[in-house]
Structure formats: C-alpha cells, structure tokens
Simulated assay, not measured.
Amino acid sequence: MTSLWRRELPLVLASQSRARRMLLANAGLACDAVPADIDERAIQQDAGLTAPYEIALHLAQAKALAVSAIKPGHHVVGADQTLALGDRLFNKPRGRDQAKQQLLALAGRTHALHSAIVVARDGEVLFSHVAIAWMSMRPLSEADVAVYLDEAGDAVMSSVGVYQLEGLGVHLFERIDGDHFTILGLPLLPLLAFFREAGLLRL
C-alpha cells in the first residue's frame, strides 16, 4: 500500500504501541515509531492534575513535544490513555498480583477510557483531542481472572486495565459504548480530519 501522507518527511508516532502503529498503517499512513523518553508518572505528579482527560491530554502533549524536539520538521503524534473507575485512576499493573486486583476491581462495573492525541511540529502543538469510551466489564470470579491471565500472557501487562480488546480482552466485557479506535488508544477519525484540513493527506 502506498502512503497517503503528502509530506516528504515521514509522520512520526511518539509511541512503541503496535496497536497504534497498526491503526495508522491500515489507514495508509506509514510512520516512524520513536517512543518518548519521559517519566510519565513524574510528569503527571508535577502537573498536579486529577481529571482523567486532563492527565491523558497532558501526557500525550509531553510525548509529542519530547519527540518533536529530536525530530525537527516532522509531524509527531503523541497519544495517551487513562482509565478511571469513578474517581479512581488505574495505571499499568506491576506484576500479576496487581493485574489480578485491578481486574477484580473492574469486574461487573463500568469504567471510562480517556484517549488523548496531540500533533506537534517543531515544539508547537498543532492539534489536540480527547475521546472517551465507556467499558462495561462482566462479573468475573477469581478463577475467571486466573484463566484469563494464564491465556493472555505478559502482553496485557503493558495495557492499562490489563486488557487488549483486539485479543482475549474481548472476553471480559458485556457492553462497550465508544469508538473502537478510542479503545485501542488512537482516536483515528478526528486525527485524520485534522490531517485532511491541514492538507497533509492525498485523500
């Protein structure tokens, strides 16, 4: 597939997420993946933000600007996701025991995924957007969680909420309200709309 990207300099994704890179590639946008070398938790703490959407947006911007500083002239996409169950925020689990506790806390309840994207170039933010998906997890027993973690493997430890909807994580849910791209961590439709408005796409 030829790229629909119009600029000579390639699009840059400030992430090592395979799901995000796949979404862009499937949309005809080949990109270079350059993970941002930042301390997300320290940045979050220093900002003093508590609202999930503000945290996601702040971290997406920090990633986009950090990579923009080392990739002059490139359009850089930064993305971040926060998971909130009421007022409680969840981070990626540190080990199986924490993953189990997170899943049991989410089981039988509805949580919100806030997915933020920011486009930056040469240290300037050109576009930002936050989308929300509501995720209703089915009731799960400890045995259910054990089977899921055994079968899903360590890959889910890299995901906030301990699931990847494109894989075995789909078994955890009974209802989802939101955009599929938002759930995968890259609200693609508003991003493509911005690229088109900026004259960056051939389609």
Rank of each mutant, 00 (worst) to 15 (best):
M1G: 15
T2G: 13
L4Q: 14
R7M: 14
L9C: 11
L9Y: 13
V12E: 03
V12Q: 04
S15P: 02
R18K: 12
A19M: 13
M22C: 11
L23C: 06
A25Q: 08
A25G: 11
N26Q: 15
A27I: 06
G28T: 03
G28Q: 00
C31R: 00
D32W: 08
A33P: 04
V34I: 07
V34G: 04
A36F: 00
I38Q: 06
E40R: 05
R41Y: 11
A42Y: 07
I43D: 03
A47W: 08
L49Y: 13
L49R: 09
T50Y: 09
P52D: 11
P52S: 12
P52M: 08
E54W: 03
A56S: 04
L57V: 08
L59C: 02
Q61F: 05
A64E: 02
V67G: 05
S68G: 12
S68L: 04
A69K: 12
G73W: 02
G73C: 08
H74F: 03
H74D: 05
D80F: 04
Q81V: 05
T82W: 02
R88M: 12
L89Y: 12
F90S: 02
N91A: 15
K92P: 04
P93S: 12
P93I: 05
D97L: 13
A99E: 01
A99T: 03
K100E: 14
Q101I: 10
L103C: 07
L103I: 06
A105C: 02
L106H: 05
G108S: 13
T110G: 02
T110I: 11
A112L: 06
L113M: 04
S115D: 07
S115R: 01
A116K: 00
A116M: 01
I117A: 10
V118H: 00
R121H: 07
G123P: 00
E124H: 12
V125A: 07
L126P: 01
F127M: 10
H129M: 09
A131F: 08
I132Y: 05
I132L: 09
A133G: 09
S136L: 13
R138I: 07
P139G: 08
L140N: 03
S141C: 11
E142N: 10
E142P: 06
A146Y: 07
A146R: 12
V147L: 12
Y148K: 01
L149Y: 02
L149V: 03
D150V: 06
E151T: 10
E151W: 11
A152Y: 02
D154H: 06
A155S: 13
V156A: 04
M157P: 03
S159A: 10
G161H: 01
V162Q: 02
Y163F: 15
Y163G: 02
Y163D: 00
L165A: 09
E166Q: 13
G167H: 08
G167M: 10
G167D: 08
G169Y: 01
H171I: 15
I176V: 15
D179I: 05
F181N: 00
T182H: 03
P190W: 07
A193Y: 11
F194S: 08
F194R: 04
F194L: 09
A198I: 07
A198G: 05
L200I: 12
L200A: 06
R202M: 10
L203H: 15
L203Y: 14
